[in-house]
Design a protein around this nucleic acid. Sequence first.
DNA 1: TCTCCGAATTGACACGTTTTAATTGATCAG
DNA 2: CTGATCAATTAAAACGTGTCAATTCGGAGA
Lengths: 340, 340
Amino acid sequence: MASSDSGHRDGTIGIKEVAAAAGVSPGTVSNVLNRPERVASATRERVMQVIGEMGFVRNGSASSLRAGQGRLVGLMVHDLANPFFTALAAGVEDLMSDRGFAVILCSSATSPQREERNLRMLAEQGVRGVLVTPVKEDHDQLGLLRERGIGTIMLDHAATRPQQCSVSVDDVAGGQMAVAHLLERGARDIAYVSGPLTIRQCADRRSGALKAIDQAEGASLREIEVDDLTPRSGQLAAERLLAELPDAIFCANDLLAMGVLRVLLQQGVRVPERVLLMGYDDIEYATASAVQLTSVRQPTYQLGKIAAELLLDEVENLSGHAHQQILFQPELIVRESTTP
Amino acid sequence: MASSDSGHRDGTIGIKEVAAAAGVSPGTVSNVLNRPERVASATRERVMQVIGEMGFVRNGSASSLRAGQGRLVGLMVHDLANPFFTALAAGVEDLMSDRGFAVILCSSATSPQREERNLRMLAEQGVRGVLVTPVKEDHDQLGLLRERGIGTIMLDHAATRPQQCSVSVDDVAGGQMAVAHLLERGARDIAYVSGPLTIRQCADRRSGALKAIDQAEGASLREIEVDDLTPRSGQLAAERLLAELPDAIFCANDLLAMGVLRVLLQQGVRVPERVLLMGYDDIEYATASAVQLTSVRQPTYQLGKIAAELLLDEVENLSGHAHQQILFQPELIVRESTTP
DNA sequence: TCTCCGAATTGACACGTTTTAATTGATCAG
DNA sequence: CTGATCAATTAAAACGTGTCAATTCGGAGA
C-alpha cells in the first residue's frame, strides 16, 4: 500500500458517470455524442453541460471497437528529412485534421521490411485507410489491406492496377520539359546529374530528358550518376564535369543543383553565361541561392491534400467511389540560372 | 441487393477463429501474443503458424480497451514545413518505431485553438503520452492530460514546473555565442535580423546577442524585425540595411540569412570581406549556398530522440521516473561567411 | 495404487461504448 | 374515454480482446 505520491486511480469518468449525473441513461449520452438530432434539445443541452463540467472525454478504443471503425488514417513516406515528403505530409495532415481524422505517421526509410512492418501495425490500429509512397513495386500487401476494407492510396507513384487509386506527378514530362527548355536556350551538350536510377523518379526524369534530346538536332546527353540526392553529391558531380564543361546541366533535384552551383561559382564558371543550370522540385531554398535556380515545380502540398480527399472519398462514400489515377503535370519555373 | 462488386463482408477472423483452427482456447492464443513464455513451446509454434496462415491481425481497439493502454503516442509541432520541426519529428518517429510505438502527428499551426483541439483528440485516442512544442505559455491542458495518466513532454521549450519534463536548446546561449563570434572577428556595428519577438526563439536569441554586446567595448546592436522567418523576409531586411551597412549581420535563422546573402551579393557587397554574416539552425542547405553560412547548430534530430526516450521512460517506468528539464547547448559552426 | 504438485490450459467475465428493439408518455382522432 | 401514433428514452446485448481463478493433466514420491 505504498501509493501516497500522486495517486489518482480510476477517477476515470465514462459515459455512464455522465449519464448518472445528468439523470439520463448511457444510451442517451451516446446519442447526444453521435446523433444529436435524435435527442430533445433540453436534455441535449443538459448532457452537454454535464460533459463539460465533468471533463468527460470519450474512450476512442471502445468507440472504435463497438462501431467497427475509428477516425484514424495512416501515412507512410520514404524519408522525413526530405522537404518533398514533408510538404506532402503537411497537405495530408491539414486536410485530415479539418475532417476530424488523425494521422499516424510512419517512415519506411525505403526499407521493404520497415514498410511491411508499418503496414501491419497500421492495420492493427484499425486505420480507415493508408496513404503510401511505396518502396516495393509489387504491392501485394496493399491488396491485403484492401480486402480488410482499408482504403489505400499510392502517393507519388502511379498505380498499375485500375482498382487502385494513386496521385502522382508526371516525372517523364518534367524531365522532358526541363531539357526542352535547355535546348531552346541553345544548349546542345547537356549533362544529366542523377541519383541512383533504381529510384523511379530519377529514372523517369532521365527518360523524359532523352525524349527531348531525341527530338533535337545534334544534341547529346552526358550522364553522371551519384549515390544520393544531396548537395554534397552535387559537388562531386560538378568536379567531374569541370574537365570538360557542358553547355548545360540538368540535375535530378534542387539539392544536387545547389551543390553543383557552389563548385561552379567557386571555380569562376559563370552561371548562366557559361553554363546553364537547372534543378527539380523547386524547393523553397531554390530562390535563396546565389543564382536563383530554374527548376521544375511539383504541386507537393496540393498532392497531399488531393490524395487525402481521395482517400476519404474511398472510405466514406464507398458506394459511389470511382478509383482514379491522378497524374499532375509539373510546371517549369524559369529563373536566373538559365536566363543569360 | 446491389452488392455484386467486391463484396467481402465479415470474413474477419479474430482470436477465437485462430483458437478453433489451432485446437486451443482463445485465452491461449492471447497468451501466445502477450506472454509467450507461459505457453508450451509446441502449442506456441502451432498457434503462431495458424496465425500466419490465416493472416490474423490483432484488433488494436479491443486490445487497448481491455488492457487499458495502447501503443500510441502523440506528437504536435508548430509547422510541418519547417525543417527544424521535421528533423525533430524524424527523431521521434525513428525511436518510437524501434520501440513498437506508433506516432500520431499533429500540427498546431501556432494556433491555440488547434492545439487544444488536437490535444483533446489525442486524449480520446488513448495515447500513452504526448510530445508538444507548446504555443500557449500557460499549459493548463497538459496538466489535465497528466491527471489522466498521459505522459507529457515539452519540446523546444523549457518547462516551468518541476514535475514537467522538457527537452530544449539554450537559445540565449546560442545568440550569445553567435554575436561573441562576430565580435571576436572584429565587428562592432552589428545588425540582428529577427522574426517577431513574440516567438520565444527569436526573443531568446536576441537576449543572448545583447548579453554579448554588453560585454564588449563600443559595440552596438541594430535590430530589424520582419514578419516571418523566410528567405523573402531576409531580402527585405537586407534592402533596409543597404543604406548603411553594418560590420556584421546576425540572422535569427538560416532562411533569413540566405535571403540577406542573396541581396548583398547582388549589390556587389562582398561576404565576408565587407560584411560578416551568420545564420541559425545550421540547416542542410546552409552549406549549399554561394557563400557557405556560418551558423549555430542545434542537435535537432537528437532532440527528438531524447525526448521520445524520456517520454517512454515516463510512461513505462513510471515508478522510478525522475522528471527532468534537459537543456542542450548549441554549437557554433564556423564557415566561409565569417572567415575573411 | 494413491496423493500431491506444478505446469499448461481453459472458461468466463470485464473493458466503455454503440445499437437495436422495446418501453414510456404524451398527443390526437374518433 | 379508448385506442392509435409518434417522439423520446431506456435496457440490454454486443464488439474482440486480456486476465485471473479454476481446471486438467502427467509425473514424482510414498
